[in-house]
Write a protein that binds this DNA or RNA. Structure first.
Lengths: 226, 226
DNA sequence: GACTCCCTAGAGTATATACTCTAATAATAC
DNA sequence: GTATTATTAGAGTATATACTCTAGGGAGTC
């Protein structure tokens, strides 16, 4: 693998594990056993590394959120979207951790992220619309659907932060993809009232699959996640 | 005012405006026109300042979220809770910005925050319960109510972050309390399906008050907030 | 061999940041 | 007044971090 790609890959890995703030360019170089000079030969600065990783993330999510125009959506589609989005979040989880600081430091990123958000919100809304076409959800007026989509976005993008802050320990390491996907339970909770009677049972069943299992057997404490 | 209190006050102000990461102890001292030595005479380190500010925040929110046990809750109560909570968020908004890093750097804060979250979630759930008693909301099973409360928490605590990232410009400064309170619109959106028919109209009316006004007259772009 | 181009090493730098140390000054107690 | 304590100034430090600069190796081409 090319050094440049190694840098991107390792940066992502380190950022995800330790947070961007705690990973310096020198750390990345040391981790790869290359010199700082080498790293800076491939990237002008740290921001450029982050920006490039963000672009990968953007591509991935855009790919996931591609919505077929020729047919309505069903429950399987919804499951796929939810699973995919949380997979993406997991793979690039550092981005949503220190987002505000990242955006403050890089205007390109700020603009791109804003547009990215808009695209995602539009996609979520469109998914709701097509789920209604497919008879899974009750149809809703545009404004309500938009507000709901925004709520979904808020839950999806911040579920991980909640998990990390709700943990007692450092939590950076001990978070799992499985836990993350309990966010799907939360999203489905939001949707329940809008599910058509025909699909109600199925959705509730699907939701159960993501129900948080009380994690700590020590009986110490439980996050009251329902 | 005592120097110690001035430090706390100015720190809060600077943290809110520029983010904790961007405000050094030297900045705080310079802002107050005191020496670094003086600052460190009053506080052992930066973490202690943050921790003390957090404790104020905790007290404030705990005070707001005190729930009368002798009567059910009505719509005015709900409005009060929402308004108060967003006021509190506004006053201490830096805390929710870089929370993960703050918690990583201070174990006390981590523990306290975890308990704080639990208390808030319990309070939200209790409010829903009492709103049901008051006939405002339909009663819900415990698990659903818990999951809903968590969704409310996610929306409330992350609405500001969304606003900041959705803005095109640096946004640190140009965010207003008024905009922040559009978060109430989002929370009420979540509650709509559970409002009893008797109160439906009133809640929708209340919600309208917080509807985001399309902000930029330049016709440039609009955050699709419904 | 010499030239070029891509890549790499590694010492080095400017700046920042959290924090320390000493000495002096103001406030208070006796 | 004097002793004691609380407060303050301000220079200074250790460490970190993002980044630079120079020198050179290796591979391909002529």
């Amino acid at each position: 693998m090319k050094t440049r790609d190694k840098i991107l890959l390792s940066s992502l890995e380190l950022f995800n594990e330790q947070g961007e703030r705690n990973v310096t360019t020198n750390h990345i170089a040391a981790y790869l056993a290359i010199s700082p000079g080498n790293l800076y030969y491939h990237f002008r600065n740290k921001s450029d590394i982050i920006y490039e990783i963000f672009q990968e993330y953007e591509k991935l999510v855009d790919y996931y959120l591609d919505i077929p125009e020729n047919r309505p959506l069903n429950l399987d589609d919804m499951t796929f979207y939810l699973e995919s989005v949380f997979d993406g979040l997991w793979s690039y989880r550092f981005l949503h951790r220190d987002l505000e600081n990242l955006l403050d430091r890089d205007q390109r990123l700020r603009n791109d992220y804003r547009e990215f958000t808009d695209r995602c919100l539009a996609a979520i809304s469109r998914i709701f619309e097509k789920l209604a076409e497919g008879g899974v959800l009750e149809p809703q007026p545009d404004t309500l659907r938009a507000a709901m989509s925004l709520n979904v976005w808020l839950i999806v993008t911040n579920w991980m932060a909640f998990l990390k802050t709700a943990h007692g320990e450092k939590a950076s390491a001990c978070l799992t993809l499985r836990e993350l996907k309990q966010g799907i339970y939360q999203v489905l909770t939001l949707e329940i009232p809008y599910v058509t009677p025909v699909y109600r049972e199925q959705v509730l069943e699907l939701r159960e699959k993501y129900r948080p299992t009380m994690p700590e057997q020590e009986g110490e404490r439980e996050v009251s996640v329902g």
